[in-house]
Design a protein around this nucleic acid. Structure first.
Lengths: 86, 86
DNA sequence: CGTGTAAGGAATTCTGACACG
DNA sequence: CGTGTAAGGAATTCTGACACG
């Protein structure tokens, strides 16, 4: 038995709060998920749940995209994939 | 300009998450608010938003009520009201 | 590629009230 | 007193798609 520990990784927020805190649109937030950049949990009925660290991540992603970085590259950063140079 | 600081006091969770984390019913959670024991924020449309510390508080309140303590007394504890003994 | 939007349905949340006690 | 519930409406969230480029 371990106590329920809360961390910045705990998925607790719904879309509305995430939109408000990141300033991003639902479309953007869902698209980043589609591109495997963020991984929210889902409630039994399918409602997305995000953590505080997801907020950080989302903001970071949006900044990079604004700079012209593609989602593919961002994904590699996040996943720490150092693919060999062909 | 101050950065948006996040703390355990930041109101970010909706009812569903609070219900899940506290194990309480909506009725109980709303009743404790009615009795001035908890103070969630409200989104523009009226949706309640709770903080992580609210979760702690709610669990604490429920435990006391289970022990037979009345909401009036709990409220005094919370508000630090040391009324004189008549 | 990254994002906006209209579309329709499903799930959430809200309030005020009746109930028991 | 503290909590359950049925009631009806309003707001949220979800998915798949068309659009631009």
């Amino acid at each position: 038995m371990e106590k329920n520990k809360l961390s910045f990784k705990t998925k607790i927020m719904t879309m509305s709060t995430v939109k408000e805190m990141t300033g991003l649109s639902e479309r953007q937030i869902r698209y980043y998920e589609e591109k495997k950049l963020v991984f929210p949990d889902r409630s039994p009925s399918g409602i997305r749940k995000y953590s505080l660290s997801d907020i950080r991540l989302l903001i970071n992603i949006a900044e990079q995209i604004k700079k012209g970085v593609r989602t593919d590259l961002i994904r590699e950063q996040i996943h720490g994939e150092n693919l060999s140079i062909s």
